[in-house]
Amino acid sequence: MTQPAIFTEGLSKTYGTLRAVDRVNLEVAPGSVFGLLGPNGAGKTTLIKLLTALVPPTEGRAVVAGHDVLREPYAVKAEIGWVAAEVILDDELTAWENLWLQAKLHRLSGWEPRARELLGYFGLADRARSRVSEFSTGMRKKLEIALALLHQPRVIFMDEPTIGLDPGTRRMLWDLIRGIHREFGVTVLLTSHYIEEADALCDQLAIIDHGRIVATGTPAELRSRVSSDLIEVETRDPVDPETLRSLPGVIRVEGTGQSLSLRVTRSEEVLPALLPALGPQKVRRIHVERPSLETVFLDLTGHRIDGDEGGKVDFRKFYATIRRSRQ
């Protein structure tokens, strides 16, 4: 039995009265890509801070790359790499100087060949002497991943690795994460609030909401937990949910008035009966969804993962601030 790359037991973090991380038990197998999926404010970032030994846990324990985060924080930090959501590099320095500083901070010797190899791998070899302020977002992201790999860490943490990126760059990054995982054999723990990202990249997933892990498994396992289809209906006038509950194939009806959501066995069989029951003139909008991680999430937490638009706006503002202050 190999030692897990990350192991936590009853891990909790409380800020005042807020329990940001609540009794989390995790086990991440070495060499896997593990995804923490949850909406903004679910506790993903706090959990990463605990696992990277940046803040001490209030309760419970965490062992990362064989070291306890509370007792041996420096040993943990020596074994982990980190890729920030917002791309954190020193813009005044060149790409090579950023690597040099990272090597100094990790007290590496003989790091230069590996640095050159990484720059080559990420296609940045000819830009080693350029200042990072001249780099595009994609190049910055690549350099940041090169920094994270420089000291040959056992675990890499990626906090929202593709947030705020355009679809092309996001695709490129997905390929890159798959690639480095394959080439460098490193365990990757990433957080995301993009369902399709977690689905595309991760071997194992944990769904986190309000600081608690509500489900874990492979993406396929999680999807299979929900076999029913979801039908969301908006009507012009209020509808009594009782009249719909008796329809064949309807498992449950939630909501009241003009906005209802139904769990049904097979939507193609239920819909023909559902429309007459509602009265076709009354229906304003109807939305059918097959089982997906999105509906799993909805099922487990009672809300959609991107329901909180406020969080997204915040990030856009955050990027704007960064851009302004760089000028």
Binding site: T52, L54, Y74, A75, K77, A78, I80, W82, A84, E86, I88, L89, D90, Q102, L105, H106, R107, I322, S325
Partner: peptide, 15 residues
């Protein structure tokens, strides 16, 4: 601190 660089430093074994 504001650019997050402090986080990059403190995520290495630097006191």
């Amino acid at each position: 601190k504001r650019f997050g660089y402090m986080k990059r430093i403190l995520l290495t074994p630097t006191p």
